[in-house]
Design a protein around this nucleic acid. Structure first.
Lengths: 219, 219, 219, 219
DNA sequence: AATGAATGAGGGTTCATTCAT
DNA sequence: AATGAATGAACCCTCATTCAT
């Protein structure tokens, strides 16, 4: 056990609250009350609220990236000129997300909220911190993806990646709400795995879509 | 002019701040200072911060839905058995979003943030308020869309719609950040119209994607 | 009444507490409790604790300097080549201090503590703020003083002024303690006027003292 | 080495910080961080923050008083009816202060701040602790001083001593600030010995000043 | 002899809101 | 219609201290 018991209680409580309410709406008092520890404990163990956010960031971003990195290595074996379909690569992402989820029921929502947060204008520090963490580990994955999709310019690829991210971030960070709507509307209890599964063909198709510029530009 | 001058100043200032910082991070003091009005003015004119949020919600959701409703009517003429391609329907959405943008540079980001907010667990009231506003007006549009996409179950369609929403919400509400990354990375100044344009084929393809259940379920 | 009732209550309470306990030891909660106002009132009226300190600074420094400025003008009449004895100038200072005291029993101690505070390394802002306030108003006074004392270099004069200041600051800011020692030791109830009075010949003599460099430098 | 290495590191660090920032503004965390020891070490070695203050108090007050006591003995030889000029006695004080300074660059400022602190209303314990330490050792010194100055009542002498103390306490505890003003204003790098030297004639003259009651009482 | 972990109390500040005018 | 003043509640954080090891 690397972290103290108290620090782990804090992390666990914080993840649940962050996942449900978002980061700014979650207060230190809520966290420490839920973790049944002293209010000062967060600052003792993590320095500040922002420090706690960075700690959960590292806790989940690291394994996520590692999983993908390893999956790529395993898939390629030794050869460096293989290609992998984007469909398969999307599956890897989903499996990596499931890995993240292992530890904790709320982990996945929180992880997605974290990605969302990192794109806020004011969160340049967090954004660069996270980017620094993953950009090397995901390099080969991104190269493989780029190689498989239909030819497009770099910035087109950039935006498409963020369209994908948006789908994931929005539906997974709001999973609780969406699941309850699904329950009311269709009387079905959806599992998060199910949503990950559903995302694969949609994201793949989106990535592969042929750019058609004829219509809209007439606007 | 239905609203008083003060109320309009408040709305304008609030939109810009909501767009940049998000709703919970934006304070009444920031809003009233930017609008150059008294601190109490928001409560006076809109009852509460939540009231102000609902006001901007109505201000932008209404024209958005109206635009789509009208576009559908125009497209269909009188006949009720026509079909419209999903691609064309996506274009309608993008044009509707551009309509929203007319009024104000920040409006689109804010509108997207509003949608995001409405899916928070704690925002049931806002969510139902918004749902109440749009569900009738968008009914025909959704039916047309449903008719054009490959056959799928209702809940599959429900999730796909939210994947689409996610792409829009994430990239447009964080447009400022993404644009500045694009600037740094590719040295291109991207316009929001450009992003809307790029989204059309991706979202259409995502919607149309064939569900392929063979791989992942073995997980 | 320029300031609101609440702001004045705060000032009054703050002066008493600052005078007794010093600035860093005095808390906002103590102040607002003593003033019987809401905790947030200090920040509302003065922006911050530092703002409150600057407000009391201005409140007392201004009349003090004005008194001296006016006293000098009156004494000189129209003529600009008169000389005034340093003894008389010291009396002016003491009378100016009594003026400060008028408003409030604790004002003088607090005013002296304020001077003390302003010489702390960390209080550059306050120091410059205060210096900015008084340096013009006291210019003629200081020139007169300089003219009357035995010839010495500028920096010698600088240090002597601060020796004088030290006598005033130390004994007046700690007047309460010193008075109670006097009570125990000599069974006398000393008034602050009495101390001011006693200071005059001592400070004058100190200022006028002939520099004698023979002894100590052999050290 | 009487004290443990850790305790000495703490003392050294604390002196520097106390000297620069004053006692209440200096935190245990700052001290232990600067001393590179555990946060709990201060309480372990000195019982409390107040205990640490008392420790530095003893560390410097003791040698200071001893120096003066010995200097008086040496000066008097065996005879008990000699007189010593107040000028010479002031020199002794300055030499004693230089002794204090030997150990540590910040010691003198801190020692003066300590005297200042001891006159705070709330520091009765510290004040009596210090008084208890020095009053016997300084008895003969004070008698000699009393004998040399012009005749005055006991309480007049009491106040004059505190005027002197004020000059020393104020200028030496704020030496860093004053030195930097001197640098800016007169472009001179002043040494603390220089200030001590300058104080001698001023303090002596102040002590010796004839009380002149004619003017001010008319106020 | 020494320390990492933890804590209760309290620090200054800011929040959205309300009230009297 | 509008606002300056004021407020209760809550914010994050830091304090000196203690405890188990």
């Amino acid at each position: 056990m690397q972290r103290s018991k108290t620090a782990n209680q804090i992390l666990k409580a914080a993840e649940a609250l962050f996942s449900e309410q978002g980061f700014p709406e979650t207060t230190m008092r809520q966290i420490t009350a839920a973790a049944d520890v002293n209010l000062a404990a967060v600052n003792y163990h993590f320095g500040s609220k922002q420090g706690l956010i960075e700690a959960v960031s590292e806790k989940y971003l690291s394994p996520f990236c590692d999983y993908i990195e390893n999956a790529v290595v395993e898939r390629l074996g030794g050869s460096s000129d293989k290609t992998v379909t984007s469909n398969e690569l999307m599956e890897m992402v989903m499996r990596a997300l499931l890995e993240v989820r292992q530890g904790n029921a709320h982990a996945l929502s929180m992880f997605m909220r974290l990605l969302d947060l990192s794109y806020m204008k004011s969160q340049t520090v967090l954004r660069e911190y996270m980017f620094h963490q993953y950009h090397e580990k995901l390099e080969r994955f991104l190269t493989l993806l780029r190689d498989d999709v239909s030819p497009m310019e770099d910035d087109e690829f950039f935006w498409r990646l963020h369209f994908l991210m948006g789908s994931m971030v929005f539906t997974l960070s709001n999973f609780q709400t969406l699941a309850s709507i699904e329950k009311n509307e269709f009387d079905k209890e959806v599992e998060i795995e199910n949503v990950l599964h559903r995302m694969i063909p949609v994201l793949t198709a989106g990535l592969q879509a042929r750019s058609d510029k004829t219509y809209f530009c007439r606007l």
